[in-house]
Simulated scan of single mutants.
Amino acid sequence: MSGPRWFASPDDASRRLGESGYLADAATAVTAYLTGALEKPLLVEGPAGVGKTELAKAVSRATGADLVRLQCYEGLDEARALYEWNYKKQLLRIQAESAGSSWQETHDEIFTEEFLLTRPLLTAIRRDEATVLLVDEVDKTDVEVEGLLLEVLSDFQVTIPELGTVEAVRRPFVVLTSNATRELSEALKRRCLYLHLDYPSAEREREIVTRQVPDLDERIAEQLVATIGRLRDLDLKKSPSIAESVDWARTLLALEIKDLDTTAIDETLGVVLKHSSDQAKAVRELRLRA
């Protein structure tokens, strides 16, 4: 069922993820290695914008595997996550066959691969090639979808009543992300390895920013990371993500800003804070305006 190992060792995972643009700490590198070696799903929890989704994308880039993504949301059901039948096409076939065929013959003909619409979970299971399955923001779904995930991720197989059981030829590298907006079931957690990602230290974030924006002046990078840290200490609706730190760095570089003073911060604050109330609080609490 399984193919070649995803990573040869934690050091190999760290190196290859780094080459793909993802700076992994020791815990992340070890967990990424174990996810592939043990063929167990990985649950990554943490606040929004700390690199949970990007980790799955980085594994895809580092290993050359295709990424299949299931974006979770309230109201997601089995038909959108797993599979459904192309009812319009089936109806057309029924109408075309109705004159000369029995119902049993028509039934057997319309419940075939030709009429099956595969969704992300079934797509990932059926692929022969190396695949990274990203189940993004699983905490936004309800318990019924969790039950579906439990069934699929336990045995990596799906039973389609009309076609039989579909079993994975090669298990995908599975990453589930959660912003911890609700508690996930213990049953789901038991089947997963677990990794908690938080905002990085100032030193690591500076390394991330300068790696992504290599032309950024070192002094500006230090000022930017220090300011981001102060903003995250505030009680904001949405704290700046790592991606927004990088966007801010690119903004400052594009504007040829040499010093992140109060004027520069005031003019570019919208790059990192996307709510007017957050901007007002930042201006007031950090005294960004003179």
Rank of each mutant, 00 (worst) to 15 (best):
V138Q: 01
S60D: 15
D217L: 06
R287E: 13
A282R: 12
D235T: 15
T118C: 07
R5C: 11
V166K: 04
T53P: 00
R289T: 10
I228K: 12
A81I: 01
L70Q: 05
L234P: 08
G18A: 07
L255Q: 09
A180G: 08
V145G: 02
A29P: 04
R204F: 04
N86T: 11
K281C: 11
L255W: 12
W248C: 06
Y22F: 15
S2N: 11
F115Q: 01
T210G: 08
D66L: 12
T165G: 07
S245D: 06
A13C: 05
Y73D: 15
A13M: 06
A65G: 02
I125N: 01
L82I: 01
Y194W: 06
V145H: 02
C192W: 06
Q157K: 07
Y33A: 13
T268C: 09
Y87R: 13
L260F: 13
L92T: 09
E137G: 02
T131P: 04
A249F: 05
A202T: 02
S98R: 14
R127E: 09
L91R: 10
W103D: 12
A48S: 13
L122N: 03
P120L: 01
L260T: 02
H275N: 15
A32Q: 11
D25W: 07
D108K: 14
Y199E: 10
L133E: 03
A226R: 13
L91Y: 11
L38Q: 13
S14P: 05
Q223W: 01
E78G: 05
A79W: 01
E222A: 15
R80S: 06
D217T: 01
E78I: 10
T177S: 03
L288E: 00
Q90A: 06
T141Q: 09
E186M: 02
F173D: 08
A8F: 07
A56R: 14
E137R: 03
D198T: 13
G46I: 00
I160E: 02
A221V: 13
L253N: 00
T53C: 07
L76Y: 09
A226G: 08
